[in-house]
């Protein structure tokens, strides 16, 4: 079943202006930046929050996000739904996500191709799944359940991975394309994840992007990564979100925008978070790429919600 753009609630008056994500740079929202963002002459294109941080009942966090949402388009990005979980989607957590979505009427809702919860508990990390028919069926069913409850399309993000599975029978790009086709979800392309996973698994990032269904992508993520080594002493990249976007990732971003056109692009910085002007600088770099390369793109300039 295919979902179109976010639907307007049938009952009740929306609390906020309708605000789809524009094809511009956005930033991951950090509590320490809120006053600076609201006061800044540079108007960031949109802000993205982790849904789980706003699943409390009330308090200062909600007050701050309401102030942001009144002035900026918002993207709600879940990190805890555990879409790849063998144990199914936790209905209580899906209800909590639905409440956040109803409360803030975001322009976009996205989640990860990963699992994080099991009987043993919640691991607070995005854990990998094998790419095979069994996982495919499970993930498609879970996305259907989520989209039915939220009454809107969600975007699925490509993961960062450090290991592979003997049980995998498909490439990551084939796997993701088939999920999107069968579930009707859109895709969130994290280009840092592409670069990190490609390095870790010995793929060519360009080849990955060539195989990725760019026409289904509605949002891009950029972030910084750290370097470690694997058992053989060779480079192993870590999705650290603790520094500026790497030069190689900017290059891949330019290629994607040339190919797919301008689209909402989030800069993530979740650890060792700097002052707002440092993150703003990254966002302005993305804005410059979008402005320079978006209009002449091969697939043509596209609207954020496809």
């Amino acid at each position: 079943m295919a979902w179109s753009a976010p639907t307007t609630p049938i009952v009740g008056t929306p609390r906020f202006p309708d605000a789809p994500l524009p094809p511009r740079a956005g930033a991951g929202l950090k509590a320490d930046h809120i006053d600076a963002i609201l006061a800044d002459d540079y108007r960031i294109g949109f802000l993205e929050v982790h849904a789980e941080n706003y699943m409390g009942d009330g308090g200062a966090a909600h007050r701050a996000l309401s102030a942001i949402r009144a002035e900026f388009p918002l993207s709600v990005h879940g990190v805890g739904l555990s879409i790849g979980s063998e144990g199914g989607i936790d209905p209580a957590h899906l209800e909590r996500l639905a409440k956040v979505v109803e409360r803030y009427e975001p322009g976009m809702v996205s989640e990860h191709l990963a699992w994080s919860s099991h009987d043993a508990g919640y691991f607070n990390d995005l854990l990998p799944v094998p790419y095979n028919a069994e996982t495919l069926d499970r993930v498609v069913a879970h996305i259907g359940q989520i989209q039915d409850r939220l009454k809107r399309q969600i975007l699925l993000e490509n993961p960062t991975t450090y290991v592979a599975f003997e049980q995998s029978t498909m490439s990551e790009t084939d796997f993701i394309r088939e999920i999107a086709q069968k579930s009707g979800c859109g895709l969130l392309l994290d280009i840092n994840n592409v670069f990190v996973s490609a390095t870790n698994h010995g793929w060519k990032p360009i080849q990955y992007l060539r195989n990725f269904p760019l026409e289904m992508v509605q949002e891009i993520h950029l972030a910084g990564h750290a370097e470690d080594v694997d058992d053989e002493g060779e480079k192993l990249l870590i999705d650290a979100h603790d520094r500026p976007v790497a030069e190689a990732v900017w290059k891949l971003y330019e290629i994607v925008i040339c190919q797919a056109g301008a689209m909402p692009t989030l800069v993530e910085w979740d650890n060792d978070v700097p002052e707002w002007p440092v993150l703003r600088r990254e966002a302005m770099l993305a804005d410059a790429v979008l402005k320079r390369l978006g209009p002449s793109a091969l697939l043509g300039s596209r609207h954020a919600t496809g």
């Binding site: 290991v163 592979a164 470690d228 192993l236």
Partner: peptide
């Protein structure tokens, strides 16, 4: 079932 690519080890990766 958890492996590294191209026959590589998975200890540090895991």
């Amino acid at each position: 079932g958890v492996i590294g690519p191209h026959g590589k080890g998975a200890k540090r990766r895991f």
